[in-house]
């Protein structure tokens, strides 16, 4: 986990800069709050997605399920590297400070929680694929939903392009997951 060093950087940035925009080095990439929030929120979603695909690759016995788990695994790894790199280049923390949990009491947290990941790991063999397909589909819907604010409000072109790619490719993968759960 690289999260802890970056969290420390975050604290330093918050302490030192009353105005992050002004603190940006001249000549650096243009970005705004939507770009930063999109990356900071997508990174933990991808980490959760990678847990789901890791478990699926270990446990599924269906070739089609393994194929899509492999594809999602690769895509989420590549995207994680890109997103981490941009935040680092911008001297921004790679994690938000606790805020996403604000909704949790209502069950409104649009993430895949450790409890769900654990339930997948422990799902009986007979239920495994159905559990994975439904959890992964919900997970990808949340990824797609998160791209909307970036596409509408981001200013950094590479980050906006990534959001568009995620929106379109995950929507296609959702269609495949749904066809697999329907055929289960």
């Amino acid at each position: 986990m690289k999260r802890h060093p970056f969290a420390a950087v975050a604290a330093v940035v918050l302490l030192l800069s009353g105005c992050g925009a002004a603190a940006r080095p001249s000549g650096a990439a243009e970005y705004n709050a939507a770009d930063v929030m999109f990356l900071q929120m997508m990174l933990p979603l991808h980490a959760q997605g990678l847990e789901l695909t890791r478990i699926a690759k270990e446990r599924t016995t269906r070739a089609e399920v393994r194929d899509i788990a492999d594809e999602l695994d690769t895509a989420q790894r590549d995207e994680t590297a890109k997103m981490t790199g941009w935040l680092t280049d911008w001297s921004q923390p790679t994690a938000m400070d606790g805020d996403p949990a604000a909704h949790e009491h209502h069950g409104g947290l649009h993430q895949t929680s450790p409890a769900e990941i654990d339930a997948l790991a422990k799902a009986p063999d007979a239920d495994f694929d159905t559990t994975f397909l439904n959890l992964m589909t919900g997970h990808l819907h949340n990824s797609v939903e998160l791209t909307r604010s970036e596409i509408e409000g981001g200013t950094n072109q590479p980050a906006k392009d990534l959001a568009t790619t995620i929106r379109e490719s995950r929507t296609k993968e959702i269609a495949r997951l749904l066809s697999l759960v329907g055929a289960g």
Partner: peptide, 18 residues
């Protein structure tokens, strides 16, 4: 969340855009 992010990184004036 956007507002929180904007405050956190100190670019509150941009929130109207996002």
């Amino acid at each position: 969340k956007l507002a929180a992010a904007a405050v956190a990184i100190g670019v509150a004036p941009l929130i109207v855009v996002v």
